[in-house]
Design a protein around this nucleic acid. Structure first.
Lengths: 239, 239
DNA sequence: ACCAGGCCTTGATACACATCAAGCAGATCG
DNA sequence: CGATCTGCTTGATGTGTATCAAGGCCTGGT
């Protein structure tokens, strides 16, 4: 990893560089391109709850979460909010907007907790793509993955119940096969509820229910997956 | 439109060529590329109910519906099916699979009625993309539109009720501003029901209910949109 | 220390939609 | 021509989840 020039727009700590090297969006760029992109990027510092962008607002940047976490969400006419996804550090978002007319992203983004977000200028990014089909293929791969994920999400919403969705979510977020099977929810539970398209009351009841069956155990704001095999069985055999 | 060579793999009627010229997937290709693609393509003739491809099966082609219509659907472990979308003539599908590893499409495709489907070989298609960022940008635009559509679909499923989804579907399929406001369902109603993620019984009741309010009128297998403004009002003011 | 305001839980109730079951009409076919 | 079948409707009933309401537990402010 080469050291940064003397006047970067922000302090790029090595940790951050490492993180960015592994974000899917930047995988295919050459080290030179990578450096140039970063030099043109700027970091947004968001307080908890602060908005990054709003629905249908034209955007000039594509984003990568550096720290904290970002919620992507829709708002209905009557003010109800539905959280589409929760973006952890290292993930890019709003990249589909690059190719829609008007560069509008049909959702909102806000910090769930104090966060840093890298904004890469769209023009610069697209300029590189425009020179290289290889880079394009990387992006098309990303977009395809998003489509895949959304198709599965539609699936879960339309033919599975809330318990299924919760279990799936737990197993999905537990990808790091820690020595211990504990998931720490670092966001309020009502956020998880919205992400899963259920009301907080229902989430509470389902958690209690799973705990009663000794499939999980509840410790404060952490969830222990007691019987992972049992949970997986529930998923595959219907609920 | 140039005439076809003497030995095309199928009979390319002018109508078909015209249709293909307007499918989003092929928009950006030059006339030469367009012709070459068609020469390498083959047409699949499907009987009603016949499968085109199955979930997770590797695919070598990207598809365009020429006639009839195609259902894209998921199957659950217990055999339940959920129709993701219904593809009319002129639309391409399964293009996201081109960029996923193993070229697997995580859904099934079958004919809802006797259909012709053009299969464009993936290698040929990708070879052209590989030479031209412009073509890539067109495809990225397509993929972004799909993402947009899926995000909206998640929205409708998670924060709107069945009546909303039906009305939205009716207004969406009524895009052709005919002199008359009649939608002919050329597929069985239970297909529409699955597409909307409701049971046939429920669809029936909702239709009856809307008819009672004089928002629509039911004629056999056609639905007349009697009060379009009223329907739109329902959508925007919640149900 | 106390109070106010979130967040979460718990219980009672409401409702949208699914499920089950029956019947009806229009096709298809011997 | 009746027999069967499939798609659709209609009614009765069941269930998952939302909604409403209240109380408990933190946390932060004054």
């Amino acid at each position: 990893m080469k050291s940064q020039p003397a006047n970067p727009p922000i302090t790029f700590k090595t940790r951050i560089i490492e993180l960015l090297r592994h974000t899917p969006l930047l995988q295919a760029f050459s080290p030179q391109q990578f450096t140039i992109l970063l030099q043109h990027s700027k970091t947004h510092y968001l307080k908890e709850g602060e908005m990054l962008f709003r629905q249908d607002e034209p955007l000039q940047e594509v984003f990568i979460c550096l720290s904290g976490c970002i919620k992507l969400f829709h708002l209905t006419a009557d003010g109800h909010e539905k959280i589409i996804n929760i973006i952890p550090p290292g993930q890019n978002f709003a990249e589909a907007m690059l190719f829609t007319e008007g560069n509008r992203c049909h959702m909102n983004a806000a910090a769930l907790k104090q966060a840093e977000v890298l904004g890469i200028p769209a023009v610069q990014f697209l300029a590189f793509l425009n020179e290289s089909p290889l880079l394009c293929f990387n992006v098309m791969g990303l977009l395809s993955k998003r489509i895949q994920w959304l198709l599965d999400e539609v699936d879960r919403l339309s033919l599975h119940n809330a318990t299924f969705r919760l279990i799936y979510f737990l197993l999905e977020t537990h990808q790091h096969p820690d020595y211990c099977n504990i998931i720490s929810l670092d966001v309020p539970k009502h956020v998880i509820a919205s992400r899963l398209s259920v009301r907080p009351e229902t989430l509470s009841r389902i958690l209690k229910n799973l705990a009663k069956q000794d499939l999980i155990a509840l410790h404060d704001h952490k969830i222990e997956l007691v019987d992972i095999e049992g949970l997986k069985t529930l998923l595959s055999h219907g609920i």
